[in-house]
Design a protein around this nucleic acid. Structure first.
Lengths: 279, 279
DNA sequence: TCACTATGGTGAACACCGTAAACTGAGTAC
DNA sequence: GTACTCAGTTTACGGTGTTCACCATAGTGA
């Protein structure tokens, strides 16, 4: 040891070991505050009062660390959207035999509210409110968490798709399940028109079936409904990511009114008329 | 000079100076062949038989170099799409007084073909064929140039939007003009329903007008038509970028049939029925 | 022909980066 | 006491963008 007292001078005294959550939280904070390049292993470690190689005790690479950050963000986003869905409809006191909604792992939140309601018109209205709230919350989160959104929905990390099913993809699927659960409720409430099985490309139909199985929510929704779900998702993704990534700036300074029209398109896809009473 | 003959041994003899085009071409080749991280200044320079600081004679930073690469890609993509549009309809011998289409800087290609035709049904059919061809070519290019597509339409470079109007944005606008010129032809041929000016949010309408002016193609298309144009673009962008970025893989292995349905949605937006005779 | 200048580079250096290997100090089970 | 594990640290390697000082060549005006 060349400088006997150097270690205790240069680093913060660590009274306990770091945790994986602290590391991902630090990484995320740096990412949000100073951009993706600032979330380097050295910077993360420095922020925690340690050195970069120490992080390898917790994650095998920077990419694996980032995947855990991604997973955490997916969970937060899904949670925020579930909350927005819950708050979209007034609380409903279910009857004694009510609340039969099958809440799967995706979390069919609010299934006891609108879905369990006996009046079809109320169920329909509640489902529409929830749908609009979920889409709005997705956009709100994206605009308020642009760096995070870019990580979740932008160009994927280089080695992300090496065959195995990692935690980020798992949480992404769970996030999709949040929307899908809402969509199922909508389908049960509205029964909007969907393509007949015979009108769907054969190869596409088997893929839709696999996707439904992967989501884990058992349902009687036909393949056509899942198809409509994906079309809605594509439209929502396109509108929000174009806005967040600035790809609409060549045309619009403020894409907000355009998004309202997108909501109208979405509502049209699921048999609703959009201009609802605003919240 | 410590080693008299060293310079001529270690580097390729450069008989002439490098050009900016050679540099961007080399950068692009490395990007495509080995991913974005491989397009480092040192690698580009090495590939050209020079050293990294020499590149600063041509570009003030790596980012500026990449912006020129982006501009070149936008030009190529626009050119490919224009060619696909031209080849979508059989060549038409215009009458003596024909070919009145106002070809602006965006390049209203084929304006002398379908747009100048006298039979409305033919004009309509040709416009539909061109629209489908353009969208298909956009997807084809994206799938065949995934690294390039990610650069053009993924998360933008960090410092890209620092106020000034650089060459990449200029070429992006020109690319948009390619689609817009086609869209104008479609509008003139089909006159599909568009939102009335009074139905469009006031703030949105002035933005749409600004956008039309920025494109430079003088036209009598109403604001509602530009709005439909943007909605088409959002849908197309969403479908293609989700597929290229792998964000549909959680649901679909092969998104091709899904894209055909997206084409149907697009056709519906512009008053056409999609299942056309395939090319 | 001489001096001057612009062009188009080079090599060294700086401050970073992810990562691997060897090592170290504390705590703990036996 | 001894072996072992944990949670890090040093050190090092090769890579990155970028800056700086320098240099060879070409062209030009006097």
């Amino acid at each position: 040891m060349t400088q006997p007292s150097a270690p205790s001078l240069t680093r913060r005294d660590r009274v306990r070991a770091a945790t994986m959550e602290e590391i991902t939280a630090t990484a995320r904070r740096l990412l949000v505050e100073h951009g993706p390049a600032a979330a380097s292993l050295r910077a993360i470690a420095r922020e925690m009062g340690m050195t970069a190689p120490g992080l390898y005790r917790y994650y095998s690479s920077r990419e694996e660390l980032l995947r855990h950050v991604i997973a955490e963000m997916f969970r937060e986003l899904a949670s925020d959207i579930r909350r927005a869905i819950e708050e979209a409809v007034p609380p409903h006191r279910a009857g004694p035999g009510g609340a039969v909604g099958a809440a799967g792992p995706g979390g069919a939140v609010g299934a006891a509210d609108g879905a369990g309601h006996e009046d079809p018109a109320v169920r329909r209205a509640h489902a529409a409110l929830k749908m609009v709230a979920a889409c709005r919350e997705f956009r709100r989160w994206a605009l308020g968490h642009q760096e995070e959104f870019a990580l979740l929905f932008g160009v994927p990390l280089p080695g992300l798709d090496d065959g195995r099913f990692d935690i980020a993809e798992q949480c992404a699927l769970e996030f999709a399940g949040t929307f899908y659960a809402l969509f199922l409720e909508l389908w049960n409430a509205v029964r909007f028109p969907v393509p007949a099985p015979s009108d769907i490309d054969q190869g596409l139909r088997v893929q839709l079936g696999r996707f439904r199985d992967a989501l884990g929510l058992q349902s009687d929704a036909p393949d056509g409904a899942i198809l409509v779900f994906l079309r809605c998702w594509v439209l929502l993704y396109g509108a929000v990511s174009m806005e967040v990534f600035g790809h609409l700036q060549f045309a619009l300074d403020d894409p907000a009114p355009m998004f309202e029209l997108t909501l109208g398109d979405l509502a049209h896809l699921v048999g609703l008329e959009y201009p609802l009473p605003e919240g």
